[in-house]
């Protein structure tokens, strides 16, 4: 069995909205092994970033319950000074939005250098500069010597994203959390970045949490996939199983909505409705049922739970057994309210 690197146990992350706490990540358990890419997929607003931020301890105003064990140490219960020894060194994070995630008043060299400085106190200034240069070249930034002394606003979105990636991998972290690392990039650079993440994985035996809604990227990169909906995991499986034999209605809907080069289809599948906001999330019974209204009420479970159907393949609830897509004519009617 693979080595556990990160183990999340019953994690609940709640935000305070108008005097009440609402869980954006709801009683979620998940493991990430060494030398493994775990992809987390789901629509916008499913709680993917909320989960990533919880692991990094970046929420300032959220209530966090449950345990996050990183190499058997509970980082959820660490003091911030203890946590600061881990963040940026053993755990790196790539942020979603490259346009706002860099300090506008700091040169690129200083921003990347800071990560090195914080965790390698005895590294000389020149050694640091060389390493920064090396990192910039690694992430495929042309004219790295020049870019080092530039400010973020002088770089394009794609370049900034690569700077953020360079920062995240600077200390060769054992766990890398990549929140939509390539959404802002075009395909050629995307494949370059994905190669880089793979290389880090092989070189360091690192575990990677890859958050994305691009299922193509998932198919290319992931070893295992966790599908997230409304703060919960609805299905976990290794990547081949998930693409070959998806079970949960949500997983199947997502897979159906991708423009697929092999299938000649005129119409893409559309999941009805939208991800409910935190306050409107049904906390009882099943969360996805509202979006597959053609499925009979009696098919849904009262308390859908994540169960193992095959070794390593977990699915929430049993209604997938009865689930099928409505026929095409019916689908025509799905106009968003």
């Amino acid at each position: 069995m693979a080595d556990k690197l990160l183990e999340i146990k019953d994690l609940t992350t709640s935000f305070r909205i108008k005097d009440d706490y609402h869980a954006a990540v709801d009683n979620l358990s998940l493991t990430v092994n060494k030398n493994e890419v775990l992809a987390i997929v789901g629509e916008s607003g499913c709680g993917k970033s909320a989960l990533a931020f919880s692991i990094m301890g970046l929420h300032t105003r959220a209530k966090i319950e449950g345990d996050i064990l990183f190499k058997d140490k509970n980082i959820a219960k660490m003091s911030s000074s203890e946590l600061n020894k881990v963040r940026g060194k053993d755990i790196g994070m790539i942020f979603q939005d490259p346009l706002t995630s860099l300090n506008p008043l700091m040169q690129i060299e200083e921003q990347i250098g800071e990560t090195l400085l914080l965790h390698n106190k005895d590294m000389s200034k020149t050694a640091r500069q060389e390493r920064v240069l090396d990192l910039l070249k690694k992430v495929g930034i042309p004219r790295a010597e020049y870019v080092m002394n530039q400010f973020p606003h002088e770089l394009s979105g794609g370049m900034r994203q690569r700077v953020i990636i360079a920062m995240a991998i600077a200390n060769k972290p054992e766990l890398l959390i990549a929140d939509e690392p390539t959404t802002a990039l075009d395909v050629t650079i995307q494949s370059q970045i994905l190669d880089l993440i793979n290389k880090l994985k092989d070189e360091m035996d690192s575990g990677i949490v890859l958050i994305t809604h691009d299922l193509g990227v998932v198919a290319e990169m992931a070893d295992r996939v966790a599908v997230m909906y409304a703060g919960q995991i609805v299905e976990v499986a290794d990547v081949k199983t998930l693409f070959a034999k998806p079970l949960h209605p949500y997983t199947r809907s997502l897979l159906n909505s991708v423009p697929n080069s092999d299938k000649e289809q005129d119409k893409l599948h559309v999941i009805q409705g939208i991800v409910p906001s935190l306050q409107n999330l049904p906390r009882e019974g099943c969360r996805f049922s509202a979006r597959i209204p053609w499925v009979d009420e009696s098919a849904h479970e009262k308390h859908p739970e994540l169960r193992e159907v095959d070794p390593g393949h977990l699915v929430r609830c049993t209604c997938y057994k009865h689930f099928s897509f409505p026929d095409e004519t019916k689908e025509e009617q799905h106009v968003l309210s």
Partner: peptide, 11 residues
């Protein structure tokens, strides 16, 4: 957001 980046570095 860049403050989060700084925190994530372990500052």
């Amino acid at each position: 957001d860049f403050i989060l980046t700084a925190r994530a570095k372990g500052a």
